[in-house]
Design a protein around this nucleic acid. Structure first.
Lengths: 167, 167
DNA sequence: GTCTTGTTTTGAATGACTCAAAACAACTGC
DNA sequence: GCAGTTGTTTTGAGTCATTCAAAACAAGAC
């Protein structure tokens, strides 16, 4: 059985200045969200800081390096708790597994490459409000607007042009 | 074993006027898309005309009434072929199964109730082009923009107000 | 009417995710 | 510091939507 070497990453031994609840003091971020600070949670939050958009599986792979023995279900549990607490946002692009991102609270959208499926954040189309109001809301009380742009990233454009040239 | 009583719905016995390739002559629509006209395909297209947004499972249920013996996989096959041919559009709202709709080619979006998950079409936010252009495309060649509005439909608003009153 | 090709059936497999019970560890107050 | 409570994680199984593959079958071409 794998010993949990990462468990000795206690919150009172981190080198961050006290009182700094900025985006780097992950323990404080978690605690301030009303959640218990645990090794898997710190590991997931750290991994998420390294990749802007990641699947549960990808995070599991990354976490497994720094904290071997962590289960995939734990990662799902952590992500679920984080999402509920508003610490991360979950997006679900058509045709792929859910992606998690730390950027929350702002009204940003996504640009996804149909070739390599890479995801890029884009600021809200025209300022902030416009894309939140459909032309006819049919009596709905609209809470959020989700915008996903699909296209080809520079790399895949180059690839497509090259293979078109080969014909 | 279920006998295919619906199979005698041949294309040469329908009551539609010849040459009318409008949205009602399903056989012609299918044929014009370069696909073979089969009973399951006609049934799916008919079901889809009755409900603007349906899952494969829902269509399977409807089709099973008019054409017993049709398999769920056949429905998936039909929907796949239709989607590839551009006859239907597939949307995948977060947290639910894929929905299929006959409205294709126009740039319309969706308004989904977070309460009952009912889906309503909405016209493009501001005319047609604006929502197709992100503020910064990061070098991407943008092909489409997908907009999903999330909110509460009139019915669920009433329900929410009522239960809030009960507290 | 026959033949070719595309469809549908049947049955199994996959991937992403959820559920549940037991083992365990964080934070509470003592 | 230490024990208790409550929330987390592990382990293992289960679900749902969807896809894959081979054989049976039927649509449209000749």
């Amino acid at each position: 059985m794998a010993t949990r070497e990462g468990t000795d990453t206690e919150h009172h031994s981190h080198g961050l200045r006290e009182g700094d609840h900025g985006s780097d003091d992950f323990a404080a971020v978690i605690r301030d969200a009303g959640l218990k600070v645990t090794a898997p949670r710190l590991a997931v939050l750290t991994s998420l800081a390294a990749s802007a958009h990641a699947t549960a599986e990808q995070l599991f792979d990354t976490v497994s390096v720094s904290l071997p023995g962590t289960s995939l279900q734990a990662v799902y549990g952590v992500l679920g708790a984080f999402t509920t607490a508003g610490l991360v946002r979950r997006i679900e692009p058509a045709g792929s597994a859910a992606l998690f991102e730390r950027r929350v609270g702002d009204n940003h959208h996504h640009l996804i490459c149909t070739g390599c499926r890479s995801v890029t954040d884009v600021e809200c189309v025209v300022g902030e409000a416009p894309c939140l109001t459909p032309s006819d809301a049919a009596g709905f009380v609209v809470q959020t607007a989700e915008v996903t742009f699909w296209g080809l990233c520079p790399d895949c454009q180059a690839g497509a042009a090259a293979s078109a040239h080969d014909l």
